[in-house]
Amino acid sequence: MTDIGLWGVPLAILGGAIRVSTPFLFVSLGECLTERSGRINLGLEGTLVFGAMTGYAVAYQSGSPWLGVLAAALAGAVFGLFHGWICKFRGVNDIAIGIAMMLLGMGLAFYFGKPFIQPVAPDLPAIPLGWWSDIPQVQAALQVNALFIVGGLLALALHWMFRATRIGLTIRVVGDSTDAARAIGLNPDTVRLLATAAGGALAGIGGAYLSLYYPGSWNEGISSGQGLMAVALVIFARWNPINCFWAALLFGGAGALGPALQSVGVSSGYYLFFAAPYVLTLALLILTSSPDKALHGAPGELSITK
């Protein structure tokens, strides 16, 4: 293997951004869709973990990781439908239901996941985009999972959908004003139900990525709060799918900083390096916020920003 020395750091950040960002990307895109319809689903952490377990279990039983991804998406959609259906009732708080469902999702995942901690399920394949380089480290960093690419394309597609399609317009209208939506004959509850279900499905896929690709195993500590963080990243991304993509990349890349710096010998204060993604995101958030346009881009019906 070539000795790349300090070049390992930027390379690790690039590789880390690609490897680590995908769950953030899927969950935040899902949540973006849900929130644009005027609902917030804070429970995607539970959906993510349940998706991770379901994906792993189905991949192990069937031998097909892609079937696992599909199962995770379906499971996520069920969670989303459930959340969307409950929140339809007047007086029910969507944030609170989300938190309770986070508990439920994690509980069910841990409950049914016990027999799958030991077995090894087949991993999702990676696409070697580093074939042009002779350096093994570059090849390793550019081992890109198809889901990452799908996630990137999905961000573009969602962006286009919100901008230019009838579906996107419908979601936006519902998200901005329930009354206005009703006035033009839309059923806000149905739109939100579907948006939450789709959001749940995406979060489930994010979970399957964790258990089936990176780190690629199922255990109860598989998610270190990625789902919750990704929900918060949507606010950071100002409800814009393209920004969600960049936010996820930033978060993944910054997360690789700590291990990469240690690997070139910088190891004192490693806890502080590990906090880099949070510090960086907070700093950017403060810099880009201003009291006047506090919630530029926020859907009008969103309970968290009202």
Binding site: M229, A232, I235, F236, L272, Y278, L285, I304
Partner: peptide
């Protein structure tokens, strides 16, 4: 003062606080 959303700020600051404490 800055219009920063409190949900995400508090979550980020929780992770930062824990890192600080560990350090």
């Amino acid at each position: 003062r800055r219009g920063v959303n409190e949900t995400i700020a508090s979550l980020l600051m929780a992770y930062i606080a824990i890192a600080l404490m560990n350090h």
